[in-house]
């Protein structure tokens, strides 16, 4: 459903994405997009959403080139990294607004109940704490039954109970056959939820395989250690290993 072909993007002289080729077409899969800071995770996600315009390459969503298109986003749910909303709108007004802009009603009520947001519905968004804002952010992202779900650091600011709720929601979304892309720095979340890891380094996909395969490839007990080994491996060009060589062939479209 998402096909990325030879995607390149630079910001000034800094090349962020360098010939990315990958597909996300398996429903019911949680793909964790990982990589160090500045590796291009957010740029890749924003390119799929049309927020970052590629220098070259092509992205197809639902079989159609997304260039100059906007209607395809109606079937993608997105959770941005930073939850900041118009300060003077109230929570229920924001939820109504997003539904109004989608031109179709979502189902926010079960999510409001799940995160215990009822007491906050009538409060201006500017008065909410960071964690509560993130819960509102999650309601906005999950209130539509869309086939694609893109989450950028979904656990930011959440308390442990809310994280458990989020994990439940992600498992339900996977069971419903959705394609879920997730970026996170919380490796336990990857370990618990992800079906596959897409590891970006220097703007390229350096590894793409299941979590078990990642751990096996580096003989590591945890995802965290496997990722550390992967990074070290790519930083040791002089040790005979070619820097930048993928340790697992990224699955192309």
């Amino acid at each position: 459903m998402i096909a990325i072909h030879n995607l390149n993007k630079s910001f000034g002289r800094l090349g962020v994405l360098k010939g990315i080729d990958c597909c996300f077409d398996q429903g019911g899969t949680i793909s964790a997009i990982l990589g160090p800071n500045g590796s291009g995770k957010t740029t890749l996600i924003k390119s799929i959403l049309g927020m970052v315009l590629p220098d070259s390459g092509r992205i197809e969503v639902f079989g159609r080139d997304i260039r100059r298109q906007h209607s395809y986003r109606d079937r993608i749910s997105y959770l941005p990294q930073i939850a900041r909303f118009p300060e003077n709108l109230r929570v229920h007004e924001l939820i109504a607004m997003v539904q109004d802009l989608h031109k179709r009603p979502g189902r926010p009520e079960p999510l409001i109940h799940r995160f215990g947001l009822e007491p906050w519905l009538d409060k201006p968004l500017g008065t909410l704490s960071g964690g509560t804002r993130q819960k509102v952010n999650l309601v906005l992202a999950f209130m539509y039954d869309n086939p694609i779900l893109i989450l950028d650091e979904p656990t930011a600011g959440l308390d442990p109970v809310a994280i458990i709720r989020l994990k439940e929601m992600l498992e339900e979304a996977r069971a419903a056959g959705k394609i879920i892309l997730l970026t996170t720095h919380i490796m336990s979340l990857v370990e618990d939820l992800a079906d596959e890891v897409v590891f970006l380094l220097d703007g390229q996909v350096r590894f793409r395989d299941s979590v078990a395969a990642l751990k096996a490839a580096f003989d590591a007990a945890s995802v965290e250690r496997a990722i550390a080994s992967l990074l070290l491996q790519n930083g040791h060009a002089s040790s005979g290993m070619q820097a930048g060589a993928p340790v697992s062939e990224p699955s192309k479209c």
Binding site: M51, R73, P86, L101
Partner: peptide, 16 residues
């Protein structure tokens, strides 16, 4: 001030 919110709007099915 509304930059992050603008990003949320940009992810909705609306023309820029």
């Amino acid at each position: 001030n509304s930059r992050e919110f603008t990003e949320l709007l940009l992810a909705l099915p609306l023309p820029r």
